[in-house]
Simulated scan of single mutants.
Amino acid sequence: MTFPTFKFDVADEQRTQAIAQNLADAVKKASPQGVVIHLEGDLGAGKTTFSRYFIQTLGHSGAVKSPTYTLVEPYELDEVNVYHFDLYRLADPEELEFMGIRDYFGTNTVCLVEWPERGGALLATADITITIKLEENIRCFTLTAEGEVGAGILTVAFACEA
């Protein structure tokens, strides 16, 4: 079965914000089974900026800081718990086992994982993979559903833009 992919060329931060808000609004409408989003891209591609707008749209009113040094920043919101991971500084995937990584992926959670390739097999499978590539002054966003849950969310979020 083929799942949907949506591509966007983004020239400014306002468009990044709009994509994050659309996706977060669609996640709010999804069932509370939990959603895992992998964010891929080079340093400076915009993964943390995207995450900030996404988390704020889900209901967090404070600052959203990069979890580069802590590996994970939790956000306990009214309707969902959000866990924002940044695995860039992860030395060994086994570190995730010591921090109880499996406890984060459950019902009524949204997990945003930057640098998922560094987590190896210990990470939960993504429902949606977002790849951000910098090409001159344009950020190229590719959002790919990795299963039925992701397909439903992306279709709600971006069907009118297809």
Results as ranks from 00 to 15, higher is better:
Asp12Trp: 00
Ala45Thr: 14
Val80Lys: 08
Ala20Lys: 06
Phe6Lys: 04
Gln21Asn: 06
Lys7Glu: 07
Thr125His: 11
Gly147Met: 04
Asn22Trp: 02
Phe85Cys: 08
Leu87Asn: 09
Trp115Pro: 06
Leu123Arg: 12
Ile130Leu: 14
Ala121Asn: 13
Asn22Lys: 15
Val110Phe: 06
Arg89Cys: 03
Ile19Cys: 01
Trp115Asn: 11
Phe8Lys: 00
Glu94Asn: 04
Leu123Thr: 12
Pro67Phe: 07
Thr49Gly: 10
Glu97Asn: 07
Arg52Glu: 09
Glu161Asn: 02
Gly106Pro: 03
Asn22Ala: 12
Val156Arg: 15
Val80Phe: 09
Lys133His: 11
Glu76His: 14
Thr49Lys: 08
Ala121Arg: 10
Gln21Ala: 10
Ser31Lys: 15
Gly34His: 09
Ile132Cys: 03
Lys28Ser: 05
Thr68Asn: 11
Gly62Leu: 03
Phe50Arg: 07
Asp127Glu: 03
Asn108Arg: 14
Tyr69Lys: 11
Arg102Lys: 14
Glu95Thr: 03
Gly46Leu: 10
Gly34Leu: 03
Lys133Trp: 01
Lys7Ile: 00
Gly119Leu: 07
Ile128Ser: 03
Lys29Trp: 01
Glu95Cys: 03
Glu40Cys: 07
Cys140Trp: 00
Gly46Trp: 10
Thr16Ile: 05
Glu136Phe: 01
Lys47Trp: 03
Ala145Asn: 01
Lys133Gln: 15
Gln21Ser: 07
Asp86Lys: 08
Glu73Ser: 11
Tyr88Trp: 12
Val10Asn: 09
Ala162Gly: 13
Leu112Thr: 12
Arg102Asn: 12
Leu87Tyr: 10
Gly120Arg: 12
Gln14Ala: 15
Ile130Trp: 01
Leu71Asn: 04
Leu96Asn: 02
Ser61Ile: 08
Lys29Arg: 14
Tyr104Gly: 13
Asp103Ile: 02
Glu146Trp: 05
Leu143Met: 14
Leu143Asp: 15
Gln17Ser: 14
Leu112Ala: 07
Phe98Gly: 00
His84Gly: 01
Leu39Met: 11
Val35Trp: 01
Thr131Ala: 15
Leu96Thr: 05
Gly44Ile: 06
Leu43Tyr: 04
Cys140Leu: 12
Ala24Ser: 08
Asp86Leu: 06
Gly119His: 07
Pro116Cys: 06
Arg52Asp: 01
Ala18Val: 02
Asp103Lys: 05
Phe50Gln: 10
Thr2Arg: 03
Ala121Cys: 00
Val149Arg: 15
Gly120Met: 11
Leu143Thr: 11
Ala124Lys: 13
Leu134Cys: 05
Ile130Pro: 02
Arg118Trp: 05
Gly119Ile: 05
Val36Asn: 04
Leu77Ile: 12
Val36Ile: 12
Gly106Arg: 12
Arg139Thr: 06
Asn108Glu: 13
Cys111Gln: 04
Ala145Arg: 02
Thr107Cys: 04
Val35Leu: 08
Leu58Ile: 06
Val36Arg: 02
Ala24Tyr: 07
Val35Met: 02
His84Ser: 02
Thr68Asp: 07
Gln56Leu: 01
Tyr83Pro: 09
Glu94Phe: 04
Asn108Ala: 14
Ile37His: 12
Arg52Thr: 11
Pro93Asn: 08
Asp127Gly: 07
Gly41Ser: 09
